[in-house]
Amino acid sequence: MHVLILPSWYPETPDDVDGIFFRQQAQALQRSGLKVGVVAPLFRSMRGKPETILSANYGFDDYVEQDVPTYVYHSMYFFPRTRLDQRRWVNAGKKLFKRYVAKHGRPDVLHAHSMNHGGILAHAIHQQTGIPYVITEHSSTYARKLIHDWQRPGMQAAAEACASRLAVSHEFCTLLKREYQGLEWQYLPNILSAPFEAPVNLAAKPANDVFTFCSVAHLQPKKGFDILLPAFAEALKARPQMQLKIGGTGPEAAKLQQLAENLNLGAPVTFLGGLKNDEVLALMYASDAFVLASRVETFGVVFIEALSQGLPVIATRCGGPESIVTPDNGILIPTENPQALAEALVRLYDTRSRYAAADLRQACLNEFGERSIVDQLTRQYRAAAARHSV
């Protein structure tokens, strides 16, 4: 079976983590024996990368990454969240599709990741070619009320015409059913990446003198570090034998470091800066637990990464973690609640012996490992192709 992936965003470089889970899933599908390609318009943000308007690439490119042919088009969003830039993105995707098909043949199924703009593109290609498509939704824009009225008719039409609608958490399925006028959505989570699934000797994990929580995310408001730091300061009053290591960069970095200083957190809190994938893996392996106080998540790959390294987790009820975190592997708390988070930090520390690292890892692999997710996706593809051929 030949599957073409249409992600709404995608890593621009080998070290780029923006959309990394799309690339990881495509490569996992390729390893399973499917024929897989990727078509990805890469439009940079004027707000996020204004300096690249003159310095970065424009135009078409293609390359093979771990046996996955990848076709990209580099450009810039000049008028973000407008019909014009959506049309530019979709038109670029159509041209990439033609280039891909000319060399690799017609796919049996399209798999779009997120409605804007991958789902819109998949619908346009389907209208022209009849190729069935599957959509997996990941975007937090629904929960954050960022969908414009002008976008909804095209999104609704794409959702109605697709062969299968998937979402990465149970809560998200419920939200999307409301957003799409009662259309049903199925839960199918993101995949655990190969480095985190690779064999690991949990028995050899270092025994820390001080119980170590780690947290990894972009340092931006929706990740809730302004909630975590005061909560950790409060928890330290009760349990001073703890420390917190934070990995990530972002617009809130200086503000959060100042907050930590104002709270007199000192040595117990360390800001590690930006971490590459192998550095995140090493941090989790050397830690005792994971915590993140997000305000909104549609899934939360970082939680399954932590579980894969035998770490119990603390998360907020913000959409995605509810499909990951259970009483057997961690603690769920309300959002925007420093006191509840402080109590959870203390409770996890006090009950740390009940979480067996090997059990946490095995349960994670069973649900989110490559074989489980690839098998589920393959069934979706075959069902879509079979319905189309009838």
Rank of each mutant, 00 (worst) to 15 (best):
M1L: 13
P11F: 03
E12D: 10
V17M: 12
D18C: 05
G19S: 12
F22W: 06
F22I: 12
Q25M: 12
A28H: 11
R31D: 15
L34I: 09
K35S: 15
K35T: 15
G37K: 05
V39Y: 01
A40S: 14
L42M: 15
S45E: 10
M46R: 14
P50K: 11
P50R: 10
S55Y: 02
A56C: 02
Y63I: 06
V64R: 14
Q66P: 00
Q66T: 08
P69G: 08
T70Y: 06
Y71V: 07
V72W: 01
M76F: 14
F78H: 13
P80N: 11
Q86D: 12
R87S: 12
R88H: 10
W89V: 03
V90W: 03
N91H: 10
K94Q: 11
L96A: 03
F97H: 07
F97I: 02
K98S: 09
R99C: 00
A102N: 12
P107L: 02
P107V: 02
D108H: 14
D108E: 15
V109T: 04
L110E: 04
H111F: 06
H117C: 11
G119H: 06
H126E: 01
Q127F: 00
I131W: 08
V134L: 08
I135R: 03
T136M: 08
H148Y: 12
W150G: 05
Q151H: 08
A159K: 00
A159V: 05
E160K: 12
S164C: 12
L166W: 03
F172E: 06
T174R: 15
E179H: 02
G182N: 02
L183C: 02
Q186F: 02
P189E: 10
E197S: 10
N208F: 04
F213E: 01
Q220W: 00
L229W: 04
A231S: 14
K237N: 13
R239S: 13
G250L: 01
A254S: 14
A260Y: 05
E261V: 01
L265G: 06
L265I: 07
G266V: 04
A267K: 15
V269K: 08
V269M: 07
F271A: 10
G274I: 00
D278G: 00
D278F: 09
E279I: 04
L281W: 10
A282R: 14
L283R: 03
M284T: 00
S287L: 05
V291A: 09
L292M: 15
S294I: 06
S294A: 12
E297R: 03
F299A: 05
L307R: 07
L311P: 04
L311W: 04
P312R: 03
C318D: 07
G320E: 01
P321F: 06
E322C: 09
S323Q: 04
V325M: 05
N329G: 06
N329D: 09
T335M: 11
N337C: 12
Q339T: 15
A342R: 08
E343L: 12
L348E: 00
D350G: 04
R352L: 04
A357F: 07
D359I: 13
L377Y: 14
R379H: 10
Q380H: 13
Y381M: 06
Y381K: 02
R387G: 00
H388R: 13
S389F: 02
